[in-house]
Design a protein around this nucleic acid. Sequence first.
DNA 1: ACTCTGTCCTGGAAGC
DNA 2: TGCTTCCAGGACAGAG
Length: 309
Amino acid sequence: MPELPEVEVVRRGLSRWITNQEVLDVEVLDPRSVRRHRQGPIDFVTSLRQAVLEQPQRRGKYLWIPLHHAPIEQKSPTALVVHLGMSGQILLSHHSAPAPHHLRIRLRLDSASGHGQAPTELRFVDQRIFGGLYLDRLVPTADEPDELIPTTVTHIGRDPLDNHFDVDHIYQVLSKKQTAIKRALLDQNLVSGIGNIYADEALWRAKIHYNRPCNRLSRKQVRTLYQCVQKVMEQALKEGGTSFDALYVNVNGESGYFDRSLNAYHQEGKYCRRCLAEGYDTFIRRDKFMNRSSYYCPRCQRKPRTTQR
DNA sequence: ACTCTGTCCTGGAAGC
DNA sequence: TGCTTCCAGGACAGAG
């Protein structure tokens, strides 16, 4: 399940190989993968053809590649926006390599214009079709006029690895929220890039129960929690991201190995590693929360007294 | 204004 | 064996 570290691994791979390459041709094999492109699949193909791909950017789980249309007068800057959803992959291959099973979109690239052994095709593969590609206009952000982001990403909050990430501002917002802390962690408008895996891992590290009301957390607890988010994401990035199966891979099709470092997520029934080190044999538990699983240690992460859903 | 649920999707696993 | 049901969850529309 791609969250921030996985998307960043993909961004770095793309940056190395596709920057300054021209799109020779585009093929949409499943129109559902471009459903967020309002003007439809045909416009997607014709608008992307002959565009030159610039340095890929990211905010949270959103990835975008600014486009440069060499021969055409630039109306306003645009970008190819990528969201991997649940199972999306960006793969760089030779165009003659066999097509993977869930191949949805292919971009033929002009490898001759760039690096010698560059791949000749960018492929979007997506089993569950929650992800997709679309074109969008780039606009300056509200607080940094030199920073351009797609209009559809303006409502997304800065992520924990962003230089302008401001934890005191986050605390101010959280102190007014009634809702459970995990719901706030997963809310991409406040802070982006956190999904179910890193939410559970950060809460475990910070020893906070997923159902703790936001407005009952101290400034210190909020600081600690977001430091834990940053630490767990930095470690995951170092280890190439989390892969449970073939659903998440980097641009070369390789899996990350952060799943071996997980302390809570997917660890139901296993000993809590921290408790074990302290001489307790507590098991990690799984609760249903927000229609998904929440993994936690019942000793380290005590339930709030007033349990609300 | 804020909070929360339902929906989109596929395929592997579990249940009968 | 073969069928059905469940489960995974990111983002957003729309309900409360």
